[in-house]
Design a protein around this nucleic acid. Sequence first.
DNA 1: GCCAACGTTGGC
DNA 2: GCCAACGTTGGC
Length: 158
Amino acid sequence: MAKDTNYWLVKCEPHETSFDDLKVRPKRTGYWRGVRNYQARNFIRDGMNKGDLAFFYHSNCDEPGVAGIADIVKAGYPDPSQFDKKHRYYDEKATDDNPRWFSFDVKWKKKFKSFVHLADLKGNKKLNDMKVVQRGQRLSIQPVTKKEFDEVCKMGGV
DNA sequence: GCCAACGTTGGC
DNA sequence: GCCAACGTTGGC
């Protein structure tokens, strides 16, 4: 039984991996590790499904905004970094039976014809309720409604 | 580099 | 359970 598609906005710092970097990778895939925020964790673990779509958002950079769309190709599996003692994101309280943190994988899907800047999102009244435009919103994984998704796609020329 | 906003930690 | 201190995020 196919589940409904959910929509997301996932933040990435482009100096680590930009949307264009993702495109030239083998299989055009990338994965998120080290999400250590419980709200974000819950979204990844409980809400995200293979086949969902996500905005690839560039954060903490000169031009914050949405670069394009990625497919969620794998979702809600335990983040391996929590079990690795040498890893920066090691968590001693996590066990195989009871993992605390979760990962997901994305695949480059489509680049916007025009990059949608954060300022553009803030300037669109239809997107007033979108999480990313709200002040102090730091969640790195955010749910997006279908309406918001469609509107931002329109702005991006897709 | 500044700083507001938010999450987490730990003393009490 | 309160709350101050601290660390992080991320726009500007």
